[in-house]
Design a protein around this nucleic acid. Sequence first.
RNA 1: GCCCUCGUGGUGAAAUUGGUAGACACAAAGGACUUAAAAUCCUUGCCCUUUUGGGAGUGCCAGUUCGAGUCUGGCCGAGGGCACCA
Length: 845
Amino acid sequence: MDRYNFKSTEEKWQKFWEKNKTFKSSINKDKKKFYCLEMFPYPSGKIHMGHVRNYTIGDVLARFKKLQNFNVLHPMGWDSFGMPAENAARENNLDPKEWTEKNISTMKTQLKRLGLSIDWDREISTCSPDYYKHQQLFFLELYDKGLVYRKENYVNWDPVDQTVLANEQVIDGKGWRSGAQVERKKLNQWFFNISKFSEQLLDGLDNLSEWPNKVKTMQKNWIGKSFGCEIDFKIEGDLPVKNIKCFTTRPDTLFGFSFLALSVDHPLSKYFENDLEFKKFKSECSKTGTTEESIAQAEKIGFKTNLLAINPMDSKMKVPVYFANFVLMDYGFGAVFGCPAHDQRDFDFAKKYQLNIRTVVRPKDKTDDFQVKNQAFVEDGLMINSSFLDGLTTPGEAIEKSIDYLTKNKLGKKKINFRLKDWGISRQRYWGCPIPIAYDKNGNIVKVPKKMLPIKLPEKIELNTKGNPLDHQKKWKEIQINGENCTLDTDTLDTFVDSSWYFLRFCSPENNQYGFNEDEVKYWMPVDQYIGGVEHAILHLLYSRFFMQALSFDRQSSIPTEPFKGLFTQGMVCHETYKDENNRWFSPDEVYTENGKDFFKIKDKKKILVGPSESMSKSKKNTIDPEKIINQYGADAVRFFILSDSPPEKDVQWSDQGMIAAYKFVQKFWILHQKITEEIKNKKRKNENIDLTIYTNKLVEKFTFSLEKFNMNVLIAYLHETYNFLNKEIEKLDIKDLKENYLKILILIFPILPHLASECIKDIQKNLNLSWPTTQKEYLEEKFVNIVIQINGKKKSLIKIEKNLDEKMLIENVMKDKKISTFLEKKSVFKHIIVKNKLVNLIIK
RNA sequence: GCCCUCGUGGUGAAAUUGGUAGACACAAAGGACUUAAAAUCCUUGCCCUUUUGGGAGUGCCAGUUCGAGUCUGGCCGAGGGCACCA
C-alpha cells in the first residue's frame, strides 16, 4: 500500500487545473449562473487562518454549485490601498507600491496552494490605475448626479505631526505616533450623500431574506429611523435670534420643558465667539475627540446663555437656553428640548444646574399627584399637568395629539429623522485613489475631464514629511484644465470606496471604457453568495448597497440595486494566548506543554500563563501560520480541519490535535481507497451481501441538505461516518454496486478535499466531468424501520419491523416485545399514538 | 439602559425543525497487538445494581402537549451590537 503523498498530488492537480483553465468563467445564458464571492483580502504580507477559513467555505460552495451544473463565477482580487502600506513604507523606507505588489505575489502563491477554484484571469487590484481610473469616473458621475458634495467637517488633528488621524490612531485622546494631545479641527472634505437613500437602504433590508438577521438589525439601528416632530422654538433675548429649530420624538412631554440645549457647533455659537468663558467651555468640549463614544464618556456640562426659549404649548412658560457638550450637531438640528422628568440625561443636567423638574407623565398605577424624584420616569403612562393632553395614554395618543396641535398652530410639524450621516470620503493620505477634482485660482471646483483620467498617484515620493504627502508634490499638483492652471485636490478617497464596487468589476475586469459592462453585470449580478467577516456588517456592506443605489440613480437602464443576494458571516479562528510573568506575549511556537495544562517557554523553561482563547492576532502572537501547516499536512487536510470543529458562523478553536486528526483522515482514506479499487477490480466477487445503494442515497440526501444549510462541520462528520462504514464492511463482506456508489461518495468529498478526491476518481474513471449525484426515492428508505416504543411519552423499547405495517399488525408487534409486555402486566393501555414508521406511544393509567 | 444571539458530557459539537438526546471528532481511563515504543484497533464515560436492568438528565422555575433540547412565559448567566440620538 502506498502512503498518500499530498505534496506531489496537490501540486499535480493544481497544475492540471491551471493548465486546463478549469475555473475560467464566461457568460452562458443556457445555464443558471452562480456568483460566489468572498471578501477580498488586504495584502498585508501573508495569508492568515481567517483567510483560510473564509476562502475554504467559499470554495466548498463554489465547487458544489459547479457540480450542480451552475455557471459559477468565483473571482479573487486585492483591496490594496490603505494605511498599512503607507506605514510600512515609512518605517522601512520602501515604496508602498513595491511593498504591496510583493505581498500580493506572496499571498497569491499561498492562496493557490489551498487549491481554490478561482478564476484568476479576473484578478483585480484596487491600487492599479486600471481599477481606480473607473472609480474616478464614478466619482464624477456621482458628482454630476448631485450625490457628492463638499462641506466642512471635524477631524482628529495631530498638531505635532501636522496630520489627520483615523479614529483608531487616537489612543486615550493622544496621537499614536507623536503622543500629542489630539485636537478637533475643521477641514473641507468630500461627502457621498448616502443619507439621501436612508429610506431605500432601510426598506431594502426587508427583501434580503438570505442575510443573517443579526446584520440586518445592525444596519437598521445604524440607519436609525425615528418618528417625531420638528419644533420651531421662539426665542427672547438680546441677540438677533428669533427662532431655534429642534427635533423631538416626545412632543407629548412639552409641558415638562425646562431648558433648551444647543451643540457648541450650532450656528448660534457665532455670537459667543468673543466670550472668553464660552471659548473655554468650547475647548473643554473639543478635548473629547470626535468619536461618539468619547463624547459619551465625558461629564455632562453646559454653558448658560441669556436667551430664553418659549414653550410652544404655553407662551408664558419661558426656559433658559444652554450650550451643552452632549448635543451633537450631526443629529437633528443640533438642538435638544430638555424635559428632565422623563429623560434620564436631561434629569442629570437639570439636577446639576438646578433647573425646574415638572412631572407630566404618571405610571398607570399611580395617582395624578405622582412626582418624579430621584430618577426620570421614562416608561409608558398617562398624561398629567399638561392641559389638553391630560388623561391621554402616552406615547401613543398624546404624541399624535400634540403634533396635531403644533401643526394647526404652525409651531411645528411631523418629521421623520434618520441617524445615518453622510459618508465622508476624503483622506489626507498618500496611498489611496486620487480625487479627480482640481481648483482654479479662485478656489472654484473644476472637474478633471474624462479624457485626462486616470489621475495617477505619483510614484516613489518622500513619505517622511509632515502633513499630507501629496500636498508636497508641487509638480504633481499643478494641472492645466481647459487652458487654465489649476491645483489638484491632494486628498485621496477612503478605501471603503474601493471595496464598494469591486464585485461589479469582477463581472468585466477587462472593460476599458467604464467600470463594468452592463450586459455582463446584468448576467452575473447580484452576488448569489457573499462570504466574509461580521466585522463588516455595517460599513462595507452598507456602503456597497449605497453604491448600487447611487449608480442606479438617474440611470438610463436598470441594474440591480442590491449587490448581495445572500450573505454569510463566518466566525473567527481562535487560539489560546500565552504570556510570561512580565506580561510579554509568546507565540504557540515558543511554548511547550507535557500535560496540556502547564505551559513553559522552550527557551528557558520558565512558566507561561495561559490566557483565554481569542481571535488570532499578530499583537497577541497567538497565530498559526497557514503556510507552515500546509507544508506539514497539505492543503486538503487544512481545509478539512478548518471546517470540522465548529459551525462556520461560529468561532472555531484552533487545535493541533484536530489538525493531526484531519491529516490522519486523509491518509487513512487513501488506504481505504486502495482497498476499494482492488475490490472493484476483483471480478470474482460472489457474496454481495451489502447493498451500498441505500446507504449512498441517504448520504447524498443528508449531505446535500447540510451543505445547502452551510452546516459544513456536519459534512465532516458524515465523511468520518462514511469512512468508518466502508472500512468496516469492506474487510468483511463483498459489496454490491461498489463502483457506482463509491464514485458518488467521491464526488461528495470533492468540494472539501479536491486534490484527494480527484486522485481517487482518476483511478476509477477517466472522465473528470463530474456532476453532483442525485437520489432516487426508492433507495432512500429501507424495507425495515426502527420503531420507538414509548410508555407515557418515555422511551421504553425499540423494535425493528417491516415498513408501512398496518396499525393492527404494528400494535400486535409492539405488544409482543418482551420489555413492553413485562411492563404492561396488570396495566391496561388507555390509548395509543402512532407516528407512522417512527414511533408508538402507549398511554397507560 | 435598549436591541440581538446563545446556554446540551472533560472539550468542540450533532439532533432532517415537536418524536430514540449526546451522531462525529478531540481529550482521558482501561485493554489488545508489540521485547518495547510509535502506529493501529477495541471498550468505558451521570446515579443505583455483580449482571440483566432501572432512574435522572439539554442553565433554573413554571406552562402547553400523548410526547419539549426544540414551542410559550418568568428568572439566572455568557457573548455581540447600539447609544448622552433629542
